[in-house]
Design a protein around this nucleic acid. Structure first.
Lengths: 233, 233
DNA sequence: TAAACCAATCTGGTTAACCAATTTATTTCA
DNA sequence: TGAAATAAATTGGTTAACCAGATTGGTTTA
């Protein structure tokens, strides 16, 4: 178990070394946005690492939009400017794993927005999928079963209804981390699950009525417990 | 040019097919959280795709926290529950490229938060890096040069000072996309760059004074133009 | 001269063989 | 019989050779 974590960190560390090398190379060679990076083969030779490691690092930088790979052509510096790229590289290299507090704080921020947007923009289809998610949650609660997944699926259904693909994407990114931490710190309190169900139903009703103010307030009430965890921990 | 885009889409499409296959497999075999997935070799054979394609798809699912790979051991379903996993898979498969409006809307939401948090939590080191980013922006503006990168670097410096690693991460994710769209739609107006500089300085001062209300208001003023783009487009 | 052609070369992507650590099955010994 | 030792099979990770498409530079041709 310990070894596996060690290798994971070493793996991540190797990525960071390669990313730092790529950054230095871009700076030293004064590569402008749009310029072509040396080929993967040359990079792997230069950095004394395997080509697949180089590819993984490039893939990561592609995810952040810093590089673009074109098949049978090359890898290119994205059009974001050298200075911005450097700043972002430094940020990426300094990224630590998110702490629970930062996750919860972000979730509250995002969801107070999604619920307002969802109340404003929800379609009938959105309502249907929210309702079925709510129903699944209800069944689990009434059967006194664990319902953490169904809980968050309802929230994801709201995010999907908010009509903002970027916010939706971010909810998808943080949700698994939220779940993991919930389980790690035993945040979920089964005794309150019926209260939670009521709150979910209130939120759903507000969205259905397209009452943005009420929707936001219901969500805030729903998050009262979370606020505690966020600022007591 | 057209071909390259076609191949990119095909590539993404292949990933989605594999992800959908993995989802179906987990459902059909009733794999619980923590259970082991079939080996990469078996998956590649079963899905009639290369093993490296399978690895890339797994890597993507790892990024979203749905799977976890352990070297020399196997790939495991994360502890997020079957139902939640299914919902997330569906969301991931349906993810389209973010539209400009959703990007701007999200940026405004995030930055109105980061600026408040930064005003509350900023350290002296944070101030220094914000100041140097601001200075770089100032120089470019005074020289009438293009300053889009320096502009957004200042905003990233604020995000770094907000003491929330998750929000910071999200700013890093959307910034390149914002820049690309700015350039595509020619949002940046050079004639107003001196006004922008003034606004940046006001924001910096408010953060320095730790005046959260003022900081938020200054940022709002700074975003007036963006609001137009967000709701006129 | 310049536009069209072509072949050598270089590219990211793919494949299959290989590696070391791990897990599972088998054998051995008390 | 049961625990300890060991061998075999399986795993994700790594490597190097290979592929098809794109690029490039020189040559030919109108």
């Amino acid at each position: 178990m310990k070894l596996e974590i060690r290798t994971r960190n070493e793996h991540k560390e190797l990525h960071n070394i390669i990313i730092a090398n790529i950054r230095d190379l871009i700076n030293n060679k004064n590569l402008e946005p749009g310029d072509k990076l040396p080929s993967e083969r040359m990079l792997s030779e230069k950095f004394k690492v395997s080509r697949s490691n180089v590819r993984e690092a490039i893939q990561k930088l592609e995810f952040y939009g810093i590089l673009k790979s074109k098949p049978q052509s090359g890898t290119f510096v994205a059009d974001i400017g050298q200075v911005a790229m450097n700043g972002m590289m430094d940020d990426i290299l300094g990224l630590e794993d998110p702490d629970f507090k930062s996750l919860v704080e972000t979730r509250i921020l995002l969801e107070l927005k999604t619920v307002r947007l969802a109340a404003k923009r929800r379609t009938d289809d959105d309502l249907k999928s929210m309702e079925s998610a709510l129903e699944a949650f209800k069944q689990k609660v009434l059967n006194k079963e664990d319902a953490v997944q169904e809980d968050l699926l309802f929230h994801l259904a709201i995010a999907q209804a908010c009509g903002n693909s970027t916010i939706n994407r971010m909810m998808l990114i943080i949700t698994p981390e939220i779940i993991n931490n919930f389980e790690k710190y035993h945040v979920c309190d089964k005794n309150q699950s019926e209260k939670r169900l009521k709150e979910h139903q209130d939120i759903f009703e507000a969205i259905k009525e397209q009452n943005t103010q009420k929707a936001k307030q219901m969500m805030k009430d729903h998050f009262v417990e979370l606020y505690k965890y966020c600022y007591n921990l």
